[in-house]
Amino acid sequence: MILKALALNTFKEAIRSKILYLFFIFGLFMVLGSRVISLLVIDDPVKIIKDFGLGSIHFFSILIVIILGIDLVSKEIEKKTIYNILSKPIRRWEFLLGKILGMLLTIAIVLLVMFIIFIILLWIRTGTLHLEYTGVVYMILLECLILTSFALLFSTVASQLFSTLFTLGIFIAGHSTEGLKLLKNFVQGKGIGAAFADFLYYLLPNLNNFNIKNDIVHGVTITVGVYFEATIYSIVYSALILLLSVYAFSRRNFY
């Protein structure tokens, strides 16, 4: 009940803030953007709507995670709302978990709405409902969970500017882990350099694990096992980052 109350409060804050504007911008951007591009490029217009639509869904959901995620705790401290909430009979880990769940709910609904717009757009063009893209959106949600947990961690220990930069950094690094393998080959698999590349490879989240966009667009079948593994990976990784946040947050004094 406490977690539900905390999560719903985070959700209410989100939907009553900037996010609605983002929705609007996204809708316009996607509808206008894919039409304009399909007119300009000599390619299959349906393929452009798919690529551009899914790319936009990914881009906007990450943007929302960063914009709202870095505020999760730092705004409570800055606005001094933290004093009252932490004096209530809740544990500090419940406060943080409630925040993550609220963000997850927000992102899930944002993704759902964006996905519906995308499906309708595609349906107008092709006359069929392309529900095979549901998996792509689910994977984006899992990626958002990991990024939210990072944003929350940074939000508990750093200022908004640094939180934004660090979360963005994790997003970029998380999509570049393959590059670390290349780096390891470059230093010929030996010495401190290789060990460091290995260390980073296993430490950073491999966000490419969640990218099945191209596979689906090209008609590759994704097995249930892939979704299952991705789910476990996302939950375990986020839980570990959440533990770090709880550790930092529970020792904090609120002067």
Binding site: K12, S17, K80, T81, Y83, N84, S87, K88, P89
Partner: peptide, 18 residues
């Protein structure tokens, strides 16, 4: 214990979107 306490902070600031 906190279940038995009511607290009002100084110059309170609350969730103004509620």
């Amino acid at each position: 214990n906190k279940n038995k306490i009511g607290y009002l902070p100084e110059n309170p600031s609350f969730y103004d979107y509620l």
